[in-house]
């Protein structure tokens, strides 16, 4: 069994905006790379995501959305439970502000899955993963209720 996401769903193919998730589409969240238990996503720089109009730095909330969603994709790729997972908690440490005008990437790794819970760590960066903008640790509940036909990767709330 492949742990990769089904490539028949267009938005799960690398380089595609996660259009099945309205908020992901609103911030142009793009899947760059998915392996079993690992994911890389990107949010391109945009004026409407700015958190400080003086500096043009992207708001921390965008990084929250990006990390939450990337962690969700990593859990989904490991457990095949897309749409049936829910974030339990998410902790983010902000290391430095994002550079204005530059896209933000996030890498997440689902390093442990138990019967009920998946544990994930991740980081947000521009080019170098050793110089992160933010790091995160998250736990996801597995096998949450979702209606039949759920086919979207959701790093969202239950």
């Amino acid at each position: 069994m492949s742990n990769d996401l089904p490539s028949t769903v267009p938005e799960h193919r690398p380089g595609f905006v996660l259009s099945g998730v309205p908020h992901a589409a609103a911030i142009q969240l793009t899947i760059m790379e998915v392996k079993a238990g690992e994911a890389v996503c990107k949010v391109p720089y945009a004026e409407h995501l700015v958190g400080n109009p003086d500096t043009g730095v992207i708001h921390g909330g965008v990084i929250t959305s990006l990390l939450d969603n990337t962690c969700g994709v990593a859990v989904g790729s490991k457990t095949q439970l897309m749409g049936h997972i829910a974030t339990l908690d998410l902790r983010i440490d902000y290391m430095k502000p994002a550079k204005p005008g530059e896209d933000i990437l996030a890498f997440a790794e689902c390093y442990k899955v138990t019967k009920n819970i998946a544990f994930v760590r991740g980081l947000a960066y521009h080019a170098d993963r050793n110089d992160p903008i933010a790091t995160c640790a998250a736990a996801f509940m597995l096998g949450t209720k979702a209606q039949k036909g759920a086919n979207v990767a959701s790093g969202g709330t239950p």
Partner: peptide, 22 residues
Amino acid sequence: HELIGNPVLPALHGGVVGAFLE
């Protein structure tokens, strides 16, 4: 509608809720 993270339930995106609290 743009705040939705799970359109099936539907539910707000976790990142949106986090950003709102921040």
